[in-house]
Nucleic acid binder design. Structure first.
Lengths: 150, 150
DNA sequence: GTACGAGACGTTATATTGTATCCAACGGCT
DNA sequence: AGCCGTTGGATACAATATAACGTCTCGTAC
């Protein structure tokens, strides 16, 4: 199932990479497509399984290398608390997002909240700390699941 | 080396657990002591190695079970981005802390910043999300290492 | 004091996640 | 064509975490 939204994400990834002078190869594009097509975050080995379908066998390093590239380019994010990966909603500008992770239905929402970013930044600078990477994940119950009483 | 500070942490853990009607057994106390004695976060297998010294061999589940208990009681925290654990500075009240992790010297600072907690909370409630656990880790360069030009 | 039950622990095996290494294939360049 | 840097294939392995099951221990009730 290739939705229109997914297609534009891939197209945008193409132009982004061209503009940056890096190569979105077939393998990398494939990993990104799999992540974008999934409603949920996927583990590296789930991606591996998805890539194996209909094609020859692949090994873990293939997926991890593609993921490393996509992470560097900001095209995907890693959810540390899940050991899983998601496609990014808005890869054009560098950003540090936050994630709401429902442990009932598995849904993940990517936020880009200025207030959180600011409070994190000022807490860091008060300590003289220079941030490079931010991991902000809130695990809990999403609105839908809360209503259903789960 | 058993510092005074470490001793009071263990003593406070004892009384906390007694007050809560849960058992801080010898194994659990040992894991907590090892974590508190360490200047850095420790992986589960590092704790396991430390516990093996001078005593009989232990298996991973022993350590993971002790860690699960200590996490539940808020006596230790898990650093998801490092797959490692640290003793908590102030276990008396339930809290969601934030961590500054220096990737040069490995030092970890636990913060309890109200502004961050508030901004996270309001972002979650705007989405109708009910938080249960918060993972906030900022990876970067600490003040000391930044000065040394690392 | 003894029997019971829940929780804690020991032990083995295994699942899951992630890397090191080395070599082959490809692509752009001169 | 020949060179060289990047990408990918393949094997092996390291690191992190859990399942399953039996045994022991401790508090409690009788």
């Amino acid at each position: 199932m290739t939705s229109i939204a997914e297609k534009t994400v891939l197209d945008r990834a193409d132009s982004l990479c061209r503009a940056r002078g890096v190569r979105l190869t077939a393998q990398r594009r494939r990993v990104l497509a799999i992540l974008c097509a999934s409603a949920r975050p996927l583990g590296a080995y789930e991606i591996l399984d998805a890539m194996r379908e209909g094609s020859r066998a692949l090994a873990p390093p293939t997926v991890y290398r593609a993921l490393d590239f996509l992470l560097e380019q900001g095209l995907v994010h890693k959810l540390e608390s899940l050991h899983a990966f998601v496609g990014c909603n808005h890869p054009e500008h560098p950003h540090s997002s936050q994630f709401l992770i429902c442990n009932s239905c598995g849904e993940v929402t990517e936020l880009e909240d200025e207030a959180i970013a600011r409070s994190l930044g000022s807490a860091a600078s008060m300590s003289g700390f220079q941030p490079q990477r931010r991991v902000v994940e809130v695990i809990g119950t999403c609105a839908g699941c809360a209503q259903k009483g789960r």
